[in-house]
């Protein structure tokens, strides 16, 4: 599950992860909810990935992992974290309390990285996508980049190069496979 504030790129990040998993032949479903406001409202998204066909509905009871771009609307996502869930937090902005004994928390200052190294803080969710992909190995880095290209609408093509840099930066800035999504057999963890 992914949560944040409208405008942070939460829906795009979810779409990139979902599309990348589709490219890798997984069973995938993706559902996003966002408030009426373009920016500033609640936004969250659920991506369901399976090694086979999917029976699950697009809204799930518990999640294996989550991305929190901001704490403002994060409570419904927190309530669905499994014990031991993998949690990636945008440490630039996230200020809520987290039970660190209960979850595997990875703090990544993605807004700072986007603003400084990438040069545009709007790329924060793509930095986070790169970090998530590296930590979990849910999909490969190249699949994520290709999925991003396929997810950007025709009138925003000028951002593709920057987004690619953002994904690769996020990928480099964390420890690879620190919390793998798949077992060595290929089955989900």
């Amino acid at each position: 599950m992914l949560t944040g504030i409208g405008g942070q790129g939460v829906q795009l990040a979810a779409q990139v992860i979902a599309r990348a998993a589709t490219l890798e032949g997984r069973g995938v479903m993706f559902f996003g909810v966002y408030g009426g406001m373009m920016r500033g409202g609640n936004t969250d998204s659920t991506v369901v990935v399976s090694d086979g066909t999917l029976d699950a509905p697009p809204i799930i009871a518990k999640t294996w992992s989550a991305i929190a771009m901001h704490h403002e609307f994060w409570e419904p996502t927190r309530a669905k974290l499994r014990d031991g869930a993998v949690l990636l937090v945008n440490s630039t902005l996230f200020e809520a309390e987290i039970d660190r004994d209960r979850y595997r928390v990875f703090e990544v200052p993605v807004t700072t990285l986007a603003a400084t190294t990438v040069g545009n803080l709007l790329a924060a969710s793509m930095v986070m996508t790169g970090a998530y992909v590296a930590i979990t190995g849910l999909v490969g880095l190249e699949s994520a980049v290709e999925a991003m290209r396929g997810s950007i609408p025709s009138y925003r093509q000028q951002h593709i190069e920057m987004n690619e840099r953002a994904i690769r930066l996020g990928h480099e800035s964390v420890e690879a496979l620190a919390a793998p999504a798949w077992q060595s057999t290929g089955a989900p963890v």
């Binding site: 779409q15 589709t22 069973g27 995938v28 479903m29 993706f30 697009p58 809204i59």
Partner: peptide, 9 residues
């Protein structure tokens, strides 16, 4: 809403 806003392959 759920049907039209869910992405599936």
């Amino acid at each position: 809403y759920l049907l039209t806003h869910t992405y599936e392959a």
